[in-house]
Nucleic acid binder design. Structure first.
Length: 654
DNA sequence: CAAGCGGTTGTACGC
DNA sequence: AGCGTACAACCGCTT
């Protein structure tokens, strides 16, 4: 019997240690092993990926390739620039492949892609072997053990996990690797369609991803940022298994830190060094295995003399949350990433809702500007010029470094959605997708739903203040001074609310609080004064409006799969005089989808049924008035006032 | 099965 | 200064 000729297809498992799939490939005792990466146009053109995450990916690929070569000088990571869906049939033939092995992916797109590849392999007579390895538990098994329901709480994960059994111990990295065969490519490249190219904004030069199958030097090398036409990365955080494992070693070496870590007690204002591990991008790209992380921590905890922290706040608890979000995504598929058609996601008529393709029931990537003011809020939030230094510092750190502390993510997410701007969480998730180096679709989506109180979490009256919250962590405002240098000389008394500083002091401290942040640089007579914008909204007022809106939406009680949400008749349930920016039957805001009478197919035939939403409340009772002393009587009026100047848009866009 | 409790990460205020 | 409590009120989970 001829010996196997194997392709090992690397994806988000860019490592050699603890790779169940790689071990499986090696256990085949192959005659030759081709470690490859296929250049997926989904990543190049369709997912939102900023330069910092690109850089991290290239780092991981370079490091992995070098590690492979150390084990076998004839081998490396072979990058082939074509979509896997068109490339594989040609590779199977050219290299006389018998087996294709890769790590299982439960992302919505990942499943579609892999199903297609499996089909092609079957046609070619190639055996496909996949192994779970991206999470502590196989996400599909976790869902099964959770009565076939998406995992929506940590206790569900813990119970379901206990049924499955122990989390697997990590597998050591291989000591040797078989050689690849001769990696010839005597076939034509099929260039993928680049339209639409939503990553065009990430580039400042021509994009040459697909100029040649094996790259410009015909050597299968990892591309450079320049080759991809990308703007330079600005992040100090770098990728690769070597760096990732070193970081893990350093964490584990500090036994007190490892064993007593409590996430809610780590400071979101800490920098140099940050308060958390920075391992999240390594979790995403697979440059550090989550099970390696889990067991290294667990082994320290087991022999720790003092009082160790427990899930969910402990380090291992963080990994359980990750598995929870993966489980939710595995069960819900594409619907997990949107409100529309999502049985687990509360329907809130946010501003700037996603446009829906009623044929597929999926969001299109565009959104509707139902409210001019909300659009301005969103832009200023994204660009870090809200006029709230805490929010702006975080957003600038996010854009520049690709990472912010988890609690910082809470602060900006709450501010954009239920605790300030009342903008759709999907808008915020898209910005995070673009800028985070650790962007993990499942975790990002899940956390945005959590923070916006549309799923996982419901205490919408707990609202982060952009002033009081950072005060708790950083009284002197050093974090703000670093990322909002305009304010570096401000007294700590005003660092989180600089608009309250007397004009004379503003001048003394070298920065005037004025404008909306678009008149960037210096200003005024002598040109020595910088400017920083005035706050774009009255936070206490806006918070009350948002809470009223949330309360109202909760009383209506719709979820994303409710027929009234699917067909647009949800409007009838939101009275015109409802408190908060919820809008009613007459107003255009909050439009998500046209009332096409015949869009019943949007309901889709897919799963979903095993995850019935809680039945909507039909409660009649009107929200009680806030009894907050002194304030709180302005709700109705204030709510209306925020809608002044609203742009009325009527029908669906062109 | 109704009620009560707790929920990784709120705020403002009083002692 | 640091802790406890009210605020207004959500959910899931346990008993």
């Amino acid at each position: 019997m001829p010996k196997p000729r194997v392709i090992y297809w690397f994806r988000t498992d860019l490592r050699l240690h603890d790779s169940p799939a790689l071990k499986t490939a090696l256990d085949l005792k192959p005659e030759c092993l081709y470690p490859i990466w296929t250049w997926d146009p989904h990543y190049v053109y369709h997912a939102r990926v900023g330069p910092n995450r690109w850089q991290f990916l290239l780092d991981c690929q370079n490091d992995l390739s070098e590690s492979i070569t150390k084990l076998n000088p004839q081998s490396k990571l072979f990058l082939i620039r074509e979509a896997p869906q068109t490339l594989f049939p040609k590779l199977f033939k050219e290299w006389k492949i018998t087996h294709l092995v890769f790590e299982k992916d439960t992302d919505a797109y990942g499943r579609d892609r892999d199903d297609k590849v499996k089909e092609l392999a079957k046609e070619a007579g190639v055996e496909v072997i996949t192994r779970p390895g991206r999470t502590l538990y196989d996400s599909d098994e976790l869902v099964k053990a959770n009565n076939n329901r998406p995992t929506m709480s940590i206790s569900q994960v813990q119970h379901a996990g206990a049924k499955i059994g122990d989390i697997a111990r990590p597998i050591p990295a291989p000591k040797s690797l078989p050689s690849p065969g001769t990696p010839t490519l005597s076939f034509n490249q099929q260039k993928p369609a680049s339209n639409p190219d939503i990553n065009a904004i990430q580039r400042d030069a021509e994009e040459k991803s697909y100029d040649a199958l094996a790259g410009p030097n015909n050597d299968f090398a990892v591309p450079t940022m320049e080759e991809l036409g990308l703007k330079p990365a600005t992040t100090p955080h770098r990728g690769g298994e070597t760096i990732g494992l070193k970081m893990l070693d350093e964490i584990i070496a500090n036994e007190d830190y490892t064993a007593t870590f409590e996430k809610p007690k780590t400071a979101p204002t800490a920098f140099e060094p940050q308060a958390t591990t920075l391992l999240s991008p390594h979790m995403h790209f697979g440059s550090v295995s989550c099970r390696e992380f889990y067991w290294r921590v667990q082994d320290v905890v087991s022999k720790y003399k003092g009082k160790a922290s427990q899930p969910p706040t402990s380090l291992t608890g963080q990994l359980l949350f990750r598995d929870m979000y993966f489980g939710a995504q595995a069960a819900l598929g594409y619907a997990f990433g949107q409100s529309y058609n999502n049985p687990q996601c509360r329907f809130i008529p946010w501003h700037l809702p996603s446009e829906i393709d009623t044929k597929s029931g999926l969001i299109t990537g565009k959104y509707l500007v139902d409210d001019a003011k909300a659009e301005v809020f969103f832009k200023r939030w994204k660009e870090g010029r809200t006029g709230f230094p805490w929010i702006d510092a975080l957003m600038r750190q996010l854009k520049h470094e690709g990472w912010i502390h988890h609690l910082g993510r809470h602060a900006v997410a709450c501010f954009l959605t239920r605790g300030g701007c009342y903008v759709d969480w999907e808008r915020g998730a898209e910005v995070f997708e673009e800028w985070l180096i650790d962007h993990e679709a499942a975790c990002n989506i899940g956390n945005w739903q959590w923070l916006s109180c549309t799923a996982f979490f419901a205490q919408f009256y707990r609202c982060y203040s952009p002033i009081a919250f950072p005060q708790k962590w950083d009284k002197d405002g050093n974090f703000v001074r670093k990322y909002v240098p305009e304010l570096e000389h401000f007294d700590k008394k005003y660092i989180y609310e600089p608009w309250k500083a007397p004009i004379l002091d503003q001048k003394k401290w070298g920065c005037l609080i004025k404008g909306d942040g678009t008149d960037t640089d210096t200003d005024t007579e002598d040109g020595t004064l910088r400017t920083y914008p005035k706050p774009m909204l009255d936070f206490p007022k806006q918070r009350d409006i948002c809470i009223q809106g949330m309360k109202n939406a909760y009383h209506v009680g719709l979820y994303g799969k409710n027929p009234k949400v699917l067909d647009g008749t949800w409007r009838k349930l939101f009275e015109d005089n409802a408190e908060g920016p919820t809008e009613g039957t007459e107003g255009p805001p909050g439009a998500m989808v046209e009332h096409e009478a015949d869009n019943a197919d949007a309901d889709g035939a897919e799963d979903g049924e095993h995850a019935a939403p809680p039945s909507p409340k039909v409660e009649k009772k009107t929200p009680k008035k806030t009894t907050e002393k002194g304030k709180g009587a302005h709700k109705r009026k204030a709510s209306q006032s925020t809608l002044d100047g609203m742009v009325t848009r009527k029908k669906k866009k062109d």
